[in-house]
Design a protein around this nucleic acid. Structure first.
Lengths: 171, 171
DNA sequence: TTCGTCATGTAATGGGTTACATGATTAC
DNA sequence: GTAATCATGTAACCCATTACATGACGAA
Protein backbone atom coordinates (compact mmCIF):
# COMPACT_ATOMS: atom_id res chain seq x y z
CA UNK A 1 0.00 0.00 0.00
CA UNK A 2 1.10 3.59 -0.36
CA UNK A 3 2.26 5.96 2.34
CA UNK A 4 -0.80 8.12 2.64
CA UNK A 5 -3.08 5.11 2.99
CA UNK A 6 -0.73 3.43 5.45
CA UNK A 7 -0.82 6.49 7.65
CA UNK A 8 -4.58 6.50 7.80
CA UNK A 9 -4.74 2.83 8.64
CA UNK A 10 -2.13 3.05 11.37
CA UNK A 11 -3.76 6.12 12.87
CA UNK A 12 -7.04 4.27 12.95
CA UNK A 13 -5.54 1.25 14.67
CA UNK A 14 -3.02 2.81 16.99
CA UNK A 15 -3.66 6.53 16.85
CA UNK A 16 -5.02 6.96 20.36
CA UNK A 17 -2.49 9.36 21.67
CA UNK A 18 -0.49 10.55 18.70
CA UNK A 19 -0.91 10.48 14.98
CA UNK A 20 1.85 9.20 12.73
CA UNK A 21 3.42 12.19 11.00
CA UNK A 22 4.69 12.41 7.45
CA UNK A 23 8.03 13.49 8.78
CA UNK A 24 8.58 10.09 10.27
CA UNK A 25 6.57 7.96 7.87
CA UNK A 26 8.22 8.73 4.56
CA UNK A 27 11.81 8.66 5.83
CA UNK A 28 11.02 5.31 7.46
CA UNK A 29 9.76 3.91 4.17
CA UNK A 30 12.92 5.07 2.44
CA UNK A 31 15.00 3.38 5.09
CA UNK A 32 13.17 0.12 4.67
CA UNK A 33 13.63 0.43 0.96
CA UNK A 34 17.38 0.85 1.33
CA UNK A 35 17.47 -2.09 3.72
CA UNK A 36 15.81 -4.20 1.05
CA UNK A 37 12.73 -4.99 3.10
CA UNK A 38 10.26 -3.44 0.70
CA UNK A 39 9.97 -2.67 -3.00
CA UNK A 40 8.30 0.32 -4.57
CA UNK A 41 6.08 0.42 -7.62
CA UNK A 42 4.80 3.62 -9.10
CA UNK A 43 1.13 3.30 -9.94
CA UNK A 44 -0.81 5.78 -12.04
CA UNK A 45 -4.22 6.32 -10.51
CA UNK A 46 -7.48 6.82 -12.42
CA UNK A 47 -7.15 10.37 -13.66
CA UNK A 48 -3.94 10.66 -15.64
CA UNK A 49 -2.91 14.06 -14.36
CA UNK A 50 -2.98 13.00 -10.74
CA UNK A 51 0.19 12.51 -8.79
CA UNK A 52 1.15 8.86 -9.13
CA UNK A 53 1.05 6.77 -5.99
CA UNK A 54 4.07 4.89 -4.77
CA UNK A 55 2.90 1.50 -3.67
CA UNK A 56 5.15 -0.50 -1.38
CA UNK A 57 5.28 -4.25 -1.04
CA UNK A 58 7.35 -6.40 1.28
CA UNK A 59 10.16 -8.44 -0.24
CA UNK A 60 10.98 -11.96 0.92
CA UNK A 61 13.73 -10.49 3.08
CA UNK A 62 11.21 -8.00 4.46
CA UNK A 63 8.74 -10.71 5.33
CA UNK A 64 11.51 -12.63 7.07
CA UNK A 65 12.48 -9.53 9.01
CA UNK A 66 8.86 -9.03 10.03
CA UNK A 67 8.67 -12.58 11.34
CA UNK A 68 11.92 -12.04 13.22
CA UNK A 69 10.64 -8.84 14.81
CA UNK A 70 7.37 -10.45 15.77
CA UNK A 71 9.15 -13.36 17.43
CA UNK A 72 11.11 -11.05 19.69
CA UNK A 73 9.40 -11.54 23.02
CA UNK A 74 11.96 -9.73 25.19
CA UNK A 75 11.52 -6.77 27.57
CA UNK A 76 11.18 -4.18 24.84
CA UNK A 77 8.05 -5.94 23.62
CA UNK A 78 6.19 -5.30 26.86
CA UNK A 79 6.91 -1.63 27.04
CA UNK A 80 3.87 0.65 26.58
CA UNK A 81 4.14 1.69 22.98
CA UNK A 82 5.76 -1.42 21.62
CA UNK A 83 3.22 -3.67 23.22
CA UNK A 84 0.34 -2.14 21.32
CA UNK A 85 2.09 -2.61 18.01
CA UNK A 86 3.03 -6.17 18.84
CA UNK A 87 -0.50 -6.96 19.90
CA UNK A 88 -2.00 -5.48 16.77
CA UNK A 89 -0.07 -8.03 14.71
CA UNK A 90 -0.68 -11.02 16.93
CA UNK A 91 -2.43 -12.88 14.13
CA UNK A 92 0.91 -13.24 12.42
CA UNK A 93 2.57 -14.82 15.46
CA UNK A 94 2.63 -18.23 17.08
CA UNK A 95 0.68 -18.79 20.24
CA UNK A 96 3.90 -19.43 22.13
CA UNK A 97 5.14 -15.97 21.35
CA UNK A 98 1.77 -14.40 22.03
CA UNK A 99 1.71 -15.95 25.46
CA UNK A 100 5.20 -14.80 26.30
CA UNK A 101 4.42 -11.24 25.24
CA UNK A 102 1.15 -11.14 27.16
CA UNK A 103 2.75 -12.59 30.29
CA UNK A 104 5.72 -10.28 30.03
CA UNK A 105 3.43 -7.30 29.73
CA UNK A 106 1.41 -8.39 32.72
CA UNK A 107 4.57 -8.84 34.75
CA UNK A 108 5.75 -5.36 33.86
CA UNK A 109 2.45 -3.85 34.97
CA UNK A 110 2.44 -5.78 38.21
CA UNK A 111 5.90 -4.50 38.97
CA UNK A 112 4.59 -0.98 38.61
CA UNK A 113 1.69 -1.68 40.93
CA UNK A 114 3.98 -3.07 43.59
CA UNK A 115 6.33 -0.13 43.30
CA UNK A 116 3.52 2.32 43.90
CA UNK A 117 1.55 0.37 46.46
CA UNK A 118 4.66 -0.39 48.47
CA UNK A 119 5.19 3.29 49.05
CA UNK A 120 1.55 4.30 49.02
CA UNK A 121 1.02 3.84 52.73
CA UNK A 122 4.16 5.81 53.47
CA UNK A 123 3.31 8.80 51.37
CA UNK A 124 -0.45 9.05 51.50
CA UNK A 125 -0.51 11.07 54.67
CA UNK A 126 1.82 13.78 53.49
CA UNK A 127 0.43 13.69 49.99
CA UNK A 128 -1.83 16.20 48.41
CA UNK A 129 -5.49 15.25 47.94
CA UNK A 130 -5.41 15.55 44.18
CA UNK A 131 -2.06 13.86 43.82
CA UNK A 132 -3.42 10.94 45.82
CA UNK A 133 -6.54 10.78 43.65
CA UNK A 134 -4.40 10.76 40.52
CA UNK A 135 -2.44 7.84 41.88
CA UNK A 136 -5.56 5.96 42.89
CA UNK A 137 -6.97 6.34 39.42
CA UNK A 138 -3.67 5.29 37.88
CA UNK A 139 -3.58 2.15 39.98
CA UNK A 140 -7.12 1.33 38.99
CA UNK A 141 -6.39 1.69 35.30
CA UNK A 142 -3.33 -0.53 35.53
CA UNK A 143 -5.21 -3.14 37.55
CA UNK A 144 -7.84 -3.21 34.88
CA UNK A 145 -5.26 -3.79 32.18
CA UNK A 146 -3.78 -6.62 34.22
CA UNK A 147 -7.21 -8.19 34.38
CA UNK A 148 -7.65 -7.78 30.66
CA UNK A 149 -4.31 -9.47 30.02
CA UNK A 150 -5.20 -12.33 32.33
CA UNK A 151 -8.33 -13.03 30.37
CA UNK A 152 -6.45 -12.97 27.12
CA UNK A 153 -3.83 -15.34 28.51
CA UNK A 154 -6.56 -17.72 29.63
CA UNK A 155 -8.14 -17.58 26.20
CA UNK A 156 -4.81 -18.33 24.55
CA UNK A 157 -4.22 -21.29 26.82
CA UNK A 158 -7.71 -22.62 26.21
CA UNK A 159 -7.07 -22.51 22.50
CA UNK A 160 -3.93 -24.67 22.60
CA UNK A 161 -5.33 -26.92 19.89
CA UNK A 162 -7.79 -24.75 17.97
CA UNK A 163 -7.40 -21.02 17.42
CA UNK A 164 -9.69 -19.02 19.63
CA UNK A 165 -11.72 -15.84 19.63
CA UNK A 166 -10.40 -13.36 22.14
CA UNK A 167 -13.04 -12.38 24.70
CA UNK A 168 -14.95 -9.37 23.56
CA UNK A 169 -14.76 -10.17 19.87
CA UNK A 170 -18.06 -10.81 18.19
CA UNK A 171 -18.93 -14.47 17.82
CA UNK B 1 14.51 20.72 47.83
CA UNK B 2 17.51 19.33 45.98
CA UNK B 3 17.59 17.63 42.59
CA UNK B 4 17.99 14.07 43.71
CA UNK B 5 15.09 14.30 46.11
CA UNK B 6 12.93 16.10 43.58
CA UNK B 7 13.46 13.29 41.12
CA UNK B 8 12.34 10.67 43.57
CA UNK B 9 9.24 12.61 44.48
CA UNK B 10 8.24 13.24 40.92
CA UNK B 11 8.84 9.63 39.94
CA UNK B 12 6.62 8.57 42.80
CA UNK B 13 3.83 10.90 41.80
CA UNK B 14 3.99 10.76 38.02
CA UNK B 15 6.43 7.98 37.22
CA UNK B 16 3.94 5.56 35.73
CA UNK B 17 5.38 5.27 32.33
CA UNK B 18 8.76 6.93 32.41
CA UNK B 19 11.15 8.04 35.10
CA UNK B 20 12.57 11.53 35.09
CA UNK B 21 16.20 11.32 34.03
CA UNK B 22 19.12 13.33 35.36
CA UNK B 23 19.88 14.42 31.84
CA UNK B 24 16.71 16.45 31.77
CA UNK B 25 16.34 17.29 35.44
CA UNK B 26 19.60 19.12 36.15
CA UNK B 27 19.68 21.14 32.92
CA UNK B 28 16.08 22.15 33.63
CA UNK B 29 17.03 23.38 37.09
CA UNK B 30 19.87 25.41 35.62
CA UNK B 31 17.50 26.93 33.13
CA UNK B 32 15.06 27.93 35.82
CA UNK B 33 17.94 29.39 37.77
CA UNK B 34 19.02 31.52 34.81
CA UNK B 35 15.43 32.60 34.32
CA UNK B 36 15.36 33.78 37.91
CA UNK B 37 12.56 31.47 38.98
CA UNK B 38 14.56 29.64 41.61
CA UNK B 39 17.53 30.29 43.91
CA UNK B 40 20.14 27.80 44.96
CA UNK B 41 21.67 27.33 48.37
CA UNK B 42 24.51 24.96 49.01
CA UNK B 43 23.85 22.97 52.16
CA UNK B 44 26.45 20.84 53.92
CA UNK B 45 24.84 17.59 55.02
CA UNK B 46 25.62 15.75 58.29
CA UNK B 47 28.95 14.12 57.53
CA UNK B 48 31.37 16.85 56.55
CA UNK B 49 33.08 15.00 53.75
CA UNK B 50 29.88 14.29 51.92
CA UNK B 51 29.05 16.05 48.70
CA UNK B 52 27.07 19.16 49.61
CA UNK B 53 23.48 19.29 48.45
CA UNK B 54 22.21 22.08 46.29
CA UNK B 55 18.83 23.08 47.61
CA UNK B 56 16.54 25.05 45.36
CA UNK B 57 13.83 27.41 46.41
CA UNK B 58 11.36 29.37 44.32
CA UNK B 59 11.80 33.13 44.11
CA UNK B 60 8.85 35.52 44.08
CA UNK B 61 9.14 35.68 40.30
CA UNK B 62 9.17 31.88 40.25
CA UNK B 63 6.06 31.64 42.34
CA UNK B 64 4.34 34.11 40.03
CA UNK B 65 5.40 32.08 37.02
CA UNK B 66 4.03 28.95 38.66
CA UNK B 67 0.69 30.61 39.22
CA UNK B 68 0.67 31.78 35.62
CA UNK B 69 1.40 28.29 34.32
CA UNK B 70 -1.26 26.77 36.52
CA UNK B 71 -3.86 29.22 35.31
CA UNK B 72 -3.30 28.26 31.69
CA UNK B 73 -6.37 26.22 30.91
CA UNK B 74 -5.92 26.03 27.12
CA UNK B 75 -5.68 22.98 24.85
CA UNK B 76 -2.16 22.05 25.87
CA UNK B 77 -3.39 21.50 29.42
CA UNK B 78 -5.68 18.67 28.37
CA UNK B 79 -3.11 16.73 26.46
CA UNK B 80 -2.12 13.39 28.00
CA UNK B 81 1.13 14.21 29.73
CA UNK B 82 0.40 17.79 30.62
CA UNK B 83 -2.93 16.94 32.12
CA UNK B 84 -1.41 14.68 34.76
CA UNK B 85 1.02 17.34 35.85
CA UNK B 86 -1.70 19.97 35.97
CA UNK B 87 -3.93 17.71 37.98
CA UNK B 88 -1.21 16.87 40.47
CA UNK B 89 -1.00 20.54 41.38
CA UNK B 90 -4.70 21.25 41.46
CA UNK B 91 -4.54 22.26 45.10
CA UNK B 92 -2.68 25.39 44.02
CA UNK B 93 -5.36 26.40 41.55
CA UNK B 94 -8.75 28.05 41.70
CA UNK B 95 -11.82 25.95 41.21
CA UNK B 96 -12.64 27.88 38.05
CA UNK B 97 -9.41 26.78 36.45
CA UNK B 98 -9.76 23.25 37.74
CA UNK B 99 -13.18 22.97 36.16
CA UNK B 100 -11.99 24.31 32.86
CA UNK B 101 -9.09 21.87 32.76
CA UNK B 102 -11.24 18.89 33.72
CA UNK B 103 -13.90 19.77 31.17
CA UNK B 104 -11.33 20.38 28.47
CA UNK B 105 -9.74 17.05 29.14
CA UNK B 106 -13.09 15.31 29.00
CA UNK B 107 -13.90 16.99 25.72
CA UNK B 108 -10.60 15.89 24.23
CA UNK B 109 -11.25 12.27 25.22
CA UNK B 110 -14.78 12.35 23.87
CA UNK B 111 -13.45 13.58 20.56
CA UNK B 112 -11.19 10.56 20.41
CA UNK B 113 -14.05 8.23 21.15
CA UNK B 114 -16.15 9.72 18.40
CA UNK B 115 -13.32 9.49 15.92
CA UNK B 116 -12.85 5.80 16.58
CA UNK B 117 -16.48 4.82 17.01
CA UNK B 118 -17.48 6.66 13.89
CA UNK B 119 -15.25 4.45 11.82
CA UNK B 120 -15.57 1.37 13.97
CA UNK B 121 -18.53 -0.05 12.15
CA UNK B 122 -16.86 0.53 8.82
CA UNK B 123 -13.64 -1.20 9.63
CA UNK B 124 -14.60 -3.94 12.01
CA UNK B 125 -15.41 -6.44 9.30
CA UNK B 126 -12.10 -6.19 7.52
CA UNK B 127 -10.17 -5.78 10.72
CA UNK B 128 -8.03 -8.37 12.34
CA UNK B 129 -9.38 -10.05 15.51
CA UNK B 130 -6.60 -8.81 17.72
CA UNK B 131 -6.58 -5.33 16.27
CA UNK B 132 -10.29 -5.11 16.99
CA UNK B 133 -9.80 -6.34 20.53
CA UNK B 134 -7.09 -3.74 21.09
CA UNK B 135 -9.44 -1.05 19.93
CA UNK B 136 -12.28 -2.31 22.09
CA UNK B 137 -10.05 -2.25 25.15
CA UNK B 138 -8.79 1.20 24.25
CA UNK B 139 -12.31 2.53 23.98
CA UNK B 140 -13.18 1.03 27.32
CA UNK B 141 -10.22 2.62 29.04
CA UNK B 142 -11.02 6.02 27.62
CA UNK B 143 -14.69 5.70 28.54
CA UNK B 144 -13.66 4.95 32.07
CA UNK B 145 -11.49 8.02 32.22
CA UNK B 146 -14.37 10.12 30.94
CA UNK B 147 -16.50 8.73 33.74
CA UNK B 148 -13.80 9.52 36.28
CA UNK B 149 -13.59 13.07 35.01
CA UNK B 150 -17.34 13.49 35.17
CA UNK B 151 -17.35 12.53 38.82
CA UNK B 152 -14.56 14.95 39.58
CA UNK B 153 -16.38 17.72 37.77
CA UNK B 154 -19.51 17.01 39.77
CA UNK B 155 -17.53 17.07 42.98
CA UNK B 156 -15.98 20.40 42.03
CA UNK B 157 -19.37 21.87 41.23
CA UNK B 158 -20.84 20.60 44.48
CA UNK B 159 -18.06 22.32 46.37
CA UNK B 160 -18.69 25.76 44.95
CA UNK B 161 -18.85 27.24 48.42
CA UNK B 162 -16.76 24.92 50.57
CA UNK B 163 -13.74 22.97 49.33
CA UNK B 164 -14.53 19.33 48.77
CA UNK B 165 -12.95 15.90 49.00
CA UNK B 166 -12.63 14.31 45.56
CA UNK B 167 -14.46 10.95 45.41
CA UNK B 168 -12.13 8.12 46.35
CA UNK B 169 -10.12 10.16 48.82
CA UNK B 170 -10.28 8.93 52.37
CA UNK B 171 -12.78 10.77 54.53
C1' DT C 1 34.88 -6.02 49.39
C1' DT C 2 31.39 -5.20 46.63
C1' DC C 3 27.00 -3.48 45.66
C1' DG C 4 23.42 -0.06 46.16
C1' DT C 5 22.30 4.56 47.30
C1' DC C 6 23.39 9.36 47.75
C1' DA C 7 24.46 13.39 44.75
C1' DT C 8 25.60 16.34 40.71
C1' DG C 9 26.55 17.03 36.28
C1' DT C 10 27.88 16.82 30.76
C1' DA C 11 27.97 15.19 25.84
C1' DA C 12 26.49 12.52 22.28
C1' DT C 13 23.06 10.53 20.17
C1' DG C 14 18.72 9.60 18.48
C1' DG C 15 14.13 10.37 17.43
C1' DG C 16 10.11 12.61 16.40
C1' DT C 17 7.20 16.75 15.43
C1' DT C 18 6.50 21.06 13.04
C1' DA C 19 6.63 23.69 9.32
C1' DC C 20 7.54 24.22 4.71
C1' DA C 21 7.03 23.05 -0.39
C1' DT C 22 4.10 21.50 -4.27
C1' DG C 23 0.05 20.64 -6.87
C1' DA C 24 -4.20 18.28 -8.50
C1' DT C 25 -8.97 17.04 -7.26
C1' DT C 26 -13.44 16.86 -5.06
C1' DA C 27 -17.10 18.51 -2.21
C1' DC C 28 -19.80 22.47 -0.44
C1' DG D 1 -14.60 30.03 -5.18
C1' DT D 2 -12.71 27.95 -1.32
C1' DA D 3 -11.76 24.57 1.83
C1' DA D 4 -10.54 19.82 2.56
C1' DT D 5 -8.51 15.74 0.86
C1' DC D 6 -5.25 13.32 -1.90
C1' DA D 7 -0.19 12.56 -2.17
C1' DT D 8 4.83 12.90 -1.46
C1' DG D 9 8.62 14.65 0.48
C1' DT D 10 12.58 17.71 3.14
C1' DA D 11 14.88 20.52 6.75
C1' DA D 12 15.11 22.66 11.04
C1' DC D 13 14.32 22.22 15.49
C1' DC D 14 13.39 20.54 19.95
C1' DC D 15 13.95 17.66 23.59
C1' DA D 16 14.79 13.61 26.11
C1' DT D 17 17.25 9.47 26.93
C1' DT D 18 21.70 7.12 27.32
C1' DA D 19 26.07 6.79 28.70
C1' DC D 20 29.79 8.63 30.85
C1' DA D 21 32.36 10.95 34.81
C1' DT D 22 33.17 11.48 39.82
C1' DG D 23 33.23 10.27 44.61
C1' DA D 24 31.67 9.27 49.45
C1' DC D 25 28.86 6.33 52.49
C1' DG D 26 26.39 2.30 54.42
C1' DA D 27 25.14 -2.44 54.35
C1' DA D 28 25.83 -7.37 53.28
Amino acid sequence: MHGYELRKRLNLMLGWRSLLSYGSLYPALKKMLRAGWIEEHTVLSGATSRRPRIVYEPTDAGRAEFVRLMSEAGPSAWEDDNFDIRFAFFSSTDMEIRLRVLEGRRMRLQERLERVQGQLSLTQKEMDRYAAELQRHGVEQVEREVHWLSELIQAERAGTTAPQQPPGAKA
